[in-house]
Design a binder for these strands. Structure first.
Lengths: 172, 172
DNA sequence: TCATTAATTAATCACTGCTCAATATATCCT
DNA sequence: AGGATATATTGAGCAGTGATTAATTAATGA
């Protein structure tokens, strides 16, 4: 997957690499969707650790930009892993697992924390709304960037900067 | 595709439906990616027509909300088509065609038009930046919504409203 | 009419996800 | 120890996929 993208990851090739047979994969994972989601969950865990390590102190501006930078640098160093999160075609009926959802929640919490000084301690709902807003925006940017459909002249960094600027202009 | 999603669309099944054989499909389209992208281009054309028909006059607020509503209503009435645009796993080397890119550009132009009164006639670059900002945000929301990974309690409409509110708060 | 061109098929290749009977390996109990 | 039980692993196989191409059929124009 890291070499050629999720779409090139087949159970047989994976099994070959680890000295097994495809059947064994299905003893460990329910199906391919399950396998990919567990990888994605692991990727989110890594992203969280990366962001956590790059958390800054200080103003909202400073903290948000540091967080956004951490997102961008992670996405750039793990393009295939991001691609799997954003573009892997899960079966329509596939539901995200609690483990996956809780990783997403941890990332949202990080965003909540970054913007927390804008709100009082009793305004958790507003922090969460803002966190979701930023998450949606970042997700869109990364999705378009990975698909190569972000306009050429404007880089990933610029798009993220514009989003953070917009947010700060609205809230400060 | 409209019945079961792009992932269920195979050349053989498609050919069967129209009374042909899969080989003939490859006389008309280069490959599956080409076929899907031509469908996606057509979907964007329909989206443009839909949005164009729902364009409102008046304040930026009014115009933007009307446009956002048009997006949402189209996405809700054409979920499978949207899914194809957002989630179909094109080959990594696949480049978007000029026809596809020009449809995207037309939609961006619509967004530019909606926010035009915020800027002077010589500030096309700023209008385009804002249009991209909104497009990225909407794209992220729809991508998450279709994946069923937008938080349950908050609907698609709310997420879009929050985005528009944020934009208006920043720019007005 | 009939040669030329275009459209269509059917067979085929190399894959894929997934299942499951059969086999091999490890573990436990006497 | 060795027999019985449980676990791990395989390999063959099914039904499907995208894509190619020689052979066939249909349409065209002089």
């Amino acid at each position: 997957m890291r070499e050629k993208g999720v779409s090139a990851l087949s159970t047989r090739k994976l099994a070959d690499r680890i000295g097994y047979t495809s059947g064994t994969i299905y003893q460990v994972f329910q199906n391919r969707d399950d396998l990919v989601e567990q990888m994605n969950t692991e990727t989110l865990r890594m992203l969280y650790a990366h962001c956590h390590a790059h958390m800054a102190e200080g103003s909202v501006q400073h903290r948000l930009r540091a967080l956004a930078d951490a997102f961008v640098s992670f996405a750039k160093t793990h393009p295939r892993e991001w691609d799997a999160i954003i573009n892997y075609p899960f079966a329509p009926e596939y539901q995200a697992t609690p483990a996956y959802l809780s990783e997403i929640q941890r990332l949202l919490d990080l965003l909540c924390e970054a913007v927390s000084e804008l709100y009082g301690p009793d305004q958790a709902d507003r922090r969460l709304r803002d966190a979701r807003l930023l998450w949606n925006g970042l997700y869109g940017i990364f999705a378009l960037a990975i698909a190569g459909r972000l306009s050429q002249e404007r880089s990933l960094n610029d798009a993220v900067d514009d989003l953070i600027d917009l947010y700060l202009a609205a809230r400060t």
